[in-house]
Design a protein around this nucleic acid. Structure first.
Length: 657
RNA sequence: GCCACCUUAGCUCAGUCGGUAGAGCUACUGUUUUGUAAACAGUGGGUCGCCGGUUCGAGUCCGGCAGGUGGCUCCA
């Protein structure tokens, strides 16, 4: 006698177990036609055809691009569609695993020959056929024994079935797209949409390699990525978003805007050009000012340090594969991959008192990590980079305040780049199974991190068990203008490195005894390189004025006005702004076009009129004409915008040329 | 590092069946002196990523290597 509560609070009672479809029909025939699944008690998504025996809160899921549950269901089902098409086109294909993921789904499989993007059209055509046939997804449950037997000879599916049983499954389910025994089937827990017909808005996106269970030592599989939406409109919008992302790719903009380059003989090392370096220095100076106001001191530690230090710190044992090493006069050294040991060595000079704590030691630390070649990506993932790093040496009692202060600072900084609270995601990772330190210590450290988030008004998602072995951590992710996630800041509580077993940092407490401080490792931007990459893509190269490499370009109309243009540019330059002059002999239209495609923030046209009036005719990157201004007024205006760190309102919107 | 794919002028890209390489933009030179998104003409520019092989002949076919791209793994 299930009693079904609908999202609007309405209660439906049924005399016997009902299916989701029957509930939908009870509400209305239109809804029943549109329904693709149900969600029970806000948690479990189910097929429309599975019986509901208990009282439940129930949501009918319809194909809707704005409903994550609907997309999840569509994509999970579409993975089957893809798998069926591939199995049919490439007999001998062995299926492994095909879940929905952000923005789509993938299916890992072992195919008789490597698949390439040339195969996509054929696969999509086959998928379209299956969609057109509109065959029902049909579930059949077998006993564990029978289910297992059905996976005989199929290593991956057998493994999946065994795992399901180990996790407590009482039956093994298969889904057929059509009539069981007649049509294609796949071992799957479900749920699925009612029929293949609702999966029309799909696309095969890419092919890549993957390992079975993510294990390098295991089978190498082919992973095909695809996506599916409720309708063509959703799919088109998604593809459009990808196009936009491609247009603002920092590797493309970096070249076009002459910000930096990478070259073949130095993989993962960035050559910063003058314009890119202008942004870099602006960022560094900005952070330097911010942390100075918060009581940090800045230091600089060596790039090359002896193996002995890395052995004591534990890096040699744990991190060696990622370290560049070198030797001199038969001693081994390593390029520093992290700044912490250097900072502790500074802390250890002289005798520290509890009165010195908290000691906030910052460094724009140049780190080298020998990342796997396949992991490198533009300037986002490199082998040489600079962290806006700091280590806070404090007592355990000081952790809550220090973490709270850091969260406030971090929010403050992110806001200056236009990332408000709604664009900051916090991940809170707690104690892992293998860890050092007492449970009481962990309790306190975790409470401090959670409390600090609350104090700073930051909501977090809990990732239980994902902390470092030496302490819990917060990780801060930014949501950019295309809705993509970038992990930037972090703060980690560390009891290990300062301990007697490691680098043995000590201070004298108010009890006259020696104690080990706690260290908070923290960064806000993460790495300057990655952060500039993120900003480049977020702003599509149209940086806010305070960061823009070329803040204003003066455009003389004819040669006669070049001298005045240079004078204007010099005045702007003397006011600590970045200006240039386009003295080429092109027509004004061409100069304007170039200024705009170069993404210069402002350009100032000067001709006979402006020379006579000692003014400029100003226009911004967006193409808005801002009228004529005296030189002083122009400088004033630019300086104000820089000081305010103003961000163009258009940033969150579409990208222009 | 692993899997798949890619690599032709500074950039974006063409190059058919294996027959000695082409466009647009850029750069340079000249003419033009221009008023809010591209003036005109001319000239440069290439060991087709590198090494080897097959062939009378390789940008093109084969092998190896390097780098890049998308993933996996890892991560600031």
């Amino acid at each position: 006698m299930p009693r079904i509560t609908l999202p609007d609070g309405k209660l439906l009672e049924f005399p016997q177990p009902v299916t989701g479809r029957q509930v939908a029909e009870a509400i209305g025939p239109g809804l029943a036609r549109k329904a693709i699944g149900v969600k029970l008690n806000g948690a479990e998504i189910r097929d429309l055809t599975r019986p509901i025996t208990e009282d439940a809160q129930l949501k009918i899921i319809t194909a809707n691009n704005d409903d994550p549950d609907a997309l999840w269901l569509l994509r999970h089902s579409c993975a089957h569609l893809l798998a069926e098409a591939v199995c049919e086109l490439f007999p001998g294909t062995k299926l492994a695993y095909g879940p929905p993921v952000d923005d789509g789904f993938f299916y890992d499989m072992k195919t008789p020959r490597p698949l390439t993007s040339d195969d996509f059209a054929t696969i999509e055509a086959k998928m379209a056929e299956i969609v057109k046939a509109n065959r029902p997804f049909t579930r059949v449950d077998y006993s564990c024994e029978t289910g297992l037997a059905r996976t005989d000879g199929d290593k991956f599916k057998r493994d999946n079935a065994e795992r399901a049983i180990a996790k407590g499954a009482t039956t093994i389910s298969f889904y057929s797209t059509g009539t069981p025994g007649e049509h294609w089937e796949d071992l799957c827990a479900g749920p699925h949409v009612p029929a293949t017909g609702v999966l029309a808005a799909n696309k095969v996106m890419s092919v890549a390699g993957a390992y079975w269970h993510g294990d390098q030592a295991s089978d190498q599989l082919t992973r095909i990525y695809g996506t599916c939406f409720a309708d063509d409109k959703g799919l088109k919008a998604h593809l459009h978003r990808l196009e936009e992302a491609k247009k603002r790719d920092h590797r493309k903009l970096g070249r076009e805007m002459d910000l930096f380059h990478l070259q073949e003989d130095n993989p993962g090392q960035v050559f910063w050009h003058p314009k890119g370096w202008a942004i870099y220095r602006e960022l560094e100076d900005y952070v330097r000012g911010k942390i100075r106001d918060r009581g940090y001191v800045e230091v600089k530690t060596p790039s090359v340090m002896s193996k002995a230090l890395w052995e004591r710190s534990g890096h040699w044992a744990k991190y060696r594969d990622n370290m560049f090493t070198t030797s001199s006069e038969e001693r081994e050294f390593a390029l520093k991959p992290m700044n912490c040991p250097g900072h502790i060595e500074i802390f250890k000079q002289g005798l520290r008192s509890y009165r010195d704590l908290p000691l906030r030691m910052a460094e724009f630390g140049s780190c080298c990590r020998n990342e796997l070649s396949g992991a490198l990506h533009g300037i986002m993932r490199v082998r040489g980079f600079v962290q806006d790093d700091a280590h806070i040496f404090c007592t355990e009692a000081q952790i809550p305040d220090e973490v709270a202060d850091f969260c406030t600072l971090l929010k403050d900084v992110y806001r200056d780049f236009g990332f408000g609270d709604d664009r900051i995601l916090v991940k809170f990772s707690t104690r892992p199974a293998v860890r050092v330190g007492s449970d009481e210590t962990w309790d306190r450290a975790e409470a401090a991190l959670a409390g600090a988030c609350k104090l700073a008004g930051l909501a977090y998602t809990l990732h239980a068990g994902e902390g470092a072995f030496y302490g819990p951590k917060l990780e801060f992710t930014l949501l950019d203008s295309l809705g993509r996630h970038w992990q930037c800041g972090t703060i980690q509580v560390d009891y290990q490195l300062p301990s007697a077993e490691r680098l043995d940092a000590q201070y004298v407490g108010d009890d006259g005894q020696k104690h080990h401080p706690v260290i908070l490792h923290r960064a806000i931007l993460g790495s300057l390189e990655r952060f500039i990459g993120i900003l480049t893509e977020h702003f599509a190269g149209k940086f806010p004025l305070w960061l823009a490499p070329e803040q204003i370009r003066v455009l003389p109309i004819t040669d006669e006005h070049v001298a005045y243009a240079r004078e204007v540019a010099k005045r702007i330059h003397d006011a600590d702004l970045r200006s240039t002059v386009d003295a080429n002999s092109e027509k004004l239209g061409a100069k304007i076009r170039l200024a705009r495609t170069d993404r210069v923030s402002y350009f100032a046209v000067v001709g006979a009129q402006e020379v006579a009036d000692r003014t400029v005719s100003l226009q911004n990157q967006a193409g808005e004409k801002l009228g004529s201004l005296a030189i002083e007024a122009l400088i004033e205006r630019l300086r104000e915008e820089v000081a305010d760190k103003r961000i163009a309102p258009a940033v969150a919107g579409a990208v222009g040329g």
